[in-house]
């Protein structure tokens, strides 16, 4: 018998999914506040463009490609779970995790290069924003990957398949955050 918290629908949305929407809503305020602060400071300081020119647009673009592709595997995993194919859903979740690993590795390489060139979190306000925003986002990527591994473990046994959709919603949101971080930190020079 399933717990009542998983089945009742006061808002017309299953409780688990409703909870994820509230998580996403709170994340909008967190990342939205951070990005709004960055935008207003960036507009007030056109000279930040000189420092933004030191970020690597190709690595940022590659990471965008990786996250967009991992979003595809996440939604295909959801599709497989909807069809009751737990093992396939799990395989696609592992592929999504691989995307997360690649993203973090590229980010680590990027940061190592930048720090070795002297661009640290205390170098200037631009770099403070850069490391804070990208670092907070990377933490969300790592957290999402860990949760995804846990969900995949049960999904491959055809258990708790509704969780595949829940982690997918979170993952797509992480993707959307990066979609905005990429032009702000890498393209706007």
């Amino acid at each position: 018998m399933r717990p009542i918290a998983n089945t009742r629908m006061a808002a017309g949305i299953p409780t688990g999914r409703l909870a994820v929407w509230w998580v996403v809503a709170s994340e909008i305020v967190i990342f939205g506040g951070l990005l709004a602060s960055y935008i207003m400071h960036r507009i007030a300081h056109p000279e930040w463009g000189d420092q933004a020119a030191n970020t690597n647009v190709w690595l940022g673009g590659f990471n965008t490609f990786v996250l967009l592709t991992s979003s595809l595997t996440a939604v295909l995993s959801h599709k497989a779970a909807t069809a009751g194919n737990g093992p396939k859903a799990a395989r696609l979740l592992y592929a999504t995790c691989l995307g997360a690993v690649i993203f973090v590795c590229v980010k680590a390489f990027e940061w190592t290069t930048e720090i070795s060139h002297g661009y640290t979190i205390t170098s200037s306000t631009f770099w403070s924003f850069y490391y804070t925003a990208a670092g907070l986002h990377a933490l969300h990527v790592i957290a999402g990957a860990i949760i995804m591994l846990l969900v995949a473990e049960t999904a491959k046994k055809n258990l708790e398949l509704h969780r595949v959709e829940l982690i997918g919603i979170y993952w797509h949101f992480v993707d959307i955050v990066w979609i905005f971080l990429f032009p702000l930190l890498y393209i706007a020079k």
Binding site: I13, W21, V24, S26, I28, V29, G32
Partner: peptide
């Protein structure tokens, strides 16, 4: 299309929109 907000009950859309308005 990936988060399926097009077929989700309006509650979710209103919730997320409210947060965006707060950020604005």
């Amino acid at each position: 299309y990936f988060m399926h907000l097009n077929v989700e009950p309006r509650y979710a859309v209103y919730l997320l929109t409210t947060m965006l308005v707060l950020v604005l």
